[in-house]
């Protein structure tokens, strides 16, 4: 004969807690998704930026710009740590200026010429030495993109910090909700708890009769939250629109990238039900033990 549950499952419904925790888990998934996307985007941008440099050769009076450009290119190409040095032709330069100047002809305008430099990531060049070497070219200046890299990293750190703060707030809210629900369950079953105490039950025994329900609630709400989170990324990936580096592509990449990367994403997302279960279990257990100590 299997003994009946000492605390009846229907004595205090945990449906509201399940719904609220599922919403919390969903928000946590979105925050984790944002964290992963920001991290990936910044890694991709900064690796591209740190690999590339640009040499700008301005038009200088009494100097043949083509000669100066070629001089800059040959100095750069021969410099240690440089893999590639390509001169962008005038039409490519004009294309870069299109957002500001439109498609009108640039003939007669002193448009600077650009040299795209690709460096060896394993043995990067000495940027200062290269800059010094380029000083013999009239109107030449080296842009290492360091400024943009620093800005991007700073922005990424800020976004990551915001995501972590959101996750922390979600955890704090979840703990508060579980405490409230635990007290409600304890209050609804007060007569049972009192009787259990009087027949010699230890607090830990009584807590075990109750916290199992919170573990199940945490697990269920965690999986609902993650399910909704994955569905959201899927819908964003399918219908988000935008360019190749836009939200849709990023969301799609979150779910369907290379196995190692995808495994990491899924690992992070599926840590949410685990965290929700632990929050429910630990918070309920601590609250129960504290409250039960006060009851008698």
């Amino acid at each position: 004969m299997k003994p009946g549950a000492i605390i009846p499952a229907n004595a205090a419904s945990l449906t509201s807690l399940t719904v609220t925790m599922a919403v919390m888990c969903y928000l946590a998934c979105l925050a984790i998704g944002a964290l992963i996307l920001v991290d990936r985007a910044v890694t991709s941008w900064t690796s591209g930026l740190s690999r590339e440099m640009t040499i700008q050769v301005r038009v200088v009076r009494d100097a043949d710009i083509d000669k100066e450009v070629e001089k800059a290119r040959s100095i750069t190409a021969a410099f240690p740590g440089i893999v590639e040095a390509d001169v962008l032709d005038e039409s490519e330069g004009a294309k870069l200026l299109e957002p500001w100047l439109g498609t009108r002809s640039l003939t007669g305008l002193p448009v600077p010429r650009l040299i795209r430099v690709v460096s060896d990531t394993d043995h990067p060049p000495d940027a200062l030495a290269l800059q010094k070497a380029l000083s013999q070219v009239k109107g030449a200046s080296l842009d290492t993109h360091q400024k943009w890299e620093v800005e991007l990293t700073r922005m990424a750190r800020a976004l990551s910090a915001v995501s972590y703060a959101i996750l922390l707030l979600i955890c704090v809210s979840a703990v508060a909700i579980v405490i409230f629900a635990t007290r409600a369950v304890l209050q609804a079953n007060r007569h049972i708890v009192d009787l259990l105490h009087l027949v010699g039950a230890r607090d830990s025994y009584i807590a075990r009769q109750i916290d199992g329900r919170f573990v199940r609630t945490g697990l269920l709400s965690g999986f609902i939250g993650v399910g909704l989170g994955i569905l959201t990324f899927l819908l964003l990936g399918l219908f988000g629109g935008g360019s190749e580096s836009g939200v849709a592509a990023a969301s799609w990449g979150l779910l369907f990238s290379a196995p190692r990367v995808a495994l990491w994403s899924y690992g992070m997302l599926f840590a949410v039900p685990l965290a929700a279960t632990l929050i429910c279990l630990i918070t309920a257990r601590i609250t129960l033990i504290r409250r039960l100590g006060v009851v008698t």
Partner: peptide
Amino acid sequence: RRRIGVVFQEFRLLDHLSTYDNVALPLRVA
């Protein structure tokens, strides 16, 4: 408390447990 048995005036039986489970409660919690 496990060395003391108590018969309460208002019985204090748990309505969701069978008579068997109610009687067995002190042994179960031990």
